[in-house]
């Protein structure tokens, strides 16, 4: 009962409440929506502990069992620790320094730490982001430029009428995007505009309509407790 019925009731009440909320312009209702969005972020923040526990546990086991490549897990820990220290150390130091600030001498041996809160330009964490994280990020993102070529090579084969349409549309647009298209034929950019404003618009709209219906039906299944996979129970009782 308390394991199943209460969660189902919570889902039902919250669901109905927020359907109604949409139609209520009153300040209370607006506060409710912004409040709950903030709550969800807070819950997510607290739950990150679970995620970090999972990550740490995985790599700890690798190192403890000395599985091949456990050195990599050690590097992971080092980098993880580095970012944590860079983020938290200035605040911790400030915590200790601040109460003594009134008249007291600044602690000299700590002065090498820039006492800038994290997430502000100039802080160590920011430097790590700019030079440690963002090169990786930009490179991973740019790798799609290579993968898109190999995916196109493999997938765009005229196997069937459907596949041929996919292929032709892709090639026309690629031609239209660059000067090559116009060199071949003046009309290519016009075809490109037509493809985007007619078939593409139609297909997208219909898919959106479908998603709308899917979303409504799925939400109702959750609100009315028909879809209860998250409670573990997959069977209808």
């Amino acid at each position: 009962m308390i394991k199943r019925q209460i969660p189902l009731m919570i889902a039902f009440v919250m669901g109905i409440l927020f359907i109604i909320q949409f139609f209520v312009p009153h300040q209370l209702s607006q506060d409710l929506l912004t409040g709950v969005n903030k709550w969800l972020m807070i819950i997510g923040g607290i739950s990150l502990l679970l995620g970090i526990n999972s990550l740490v546990h995985f790599h700890y086991v690798q190192i403890k069992r000395e599985t091949p490549g456990w050195g990599f897990s050690l590097v992971m820990f080092l980098c993880f620790g580095l970012a944590l220290v860079a983020g938290f150390l200035p605040s911790i130091v400030m915590w200790f320094v601040e109460p003594a600030k009134a008249g007291a001498e600044p602690v000299k041996w700590l002065s090498f730490i820039p006492l800038i809160p994290p997430f502000e330009p100039g802080s160590t964490l920011f430097w790590i982001f700019r030079n440690g994280i963002s090169p990786f990020m930009a490179t991973m993102f740019s790798m799609i430029g290579f993968f898109i070529a190999s995916a196109a090579f493999r997938a765009f084969r005229a196997r069937s009428l459907e596949a041929t349409l996919l292929l032709i549309a892709a090639v026309i647009i690629m031609l239209g995007q660059t000067p090559i298209g116009q060199m071949l034929w003046q009309g290519i950019p016009d075809i490109m505009v037509w493809i985007f404003s007619v078939p593409n618009t139609a297909a997208k709209r219909a898919i959106w309509f479908g998603i709308t219906m899917g979303t409504i039906a799925f939400s109702l299944r959750i609100i009315f407790g028909i879809e209860r996979a998250y409670l573990g129970g997959t069977d209808q009782k």
Binding site: V75, L84, F136
Partner: peptide
């Protein structure tokens, strides 16, 4: 592994300093 470690650390800092 470096990338994962750094972003996980960044994520913790972000959750703490920007939300919690």
């Amino acid at each position: 592994y470096m990338y994962v470690g750094l972003t996980a650390g960044w994520g913790v800092c972000s959750a703490w300093f920007n939300v919690v």
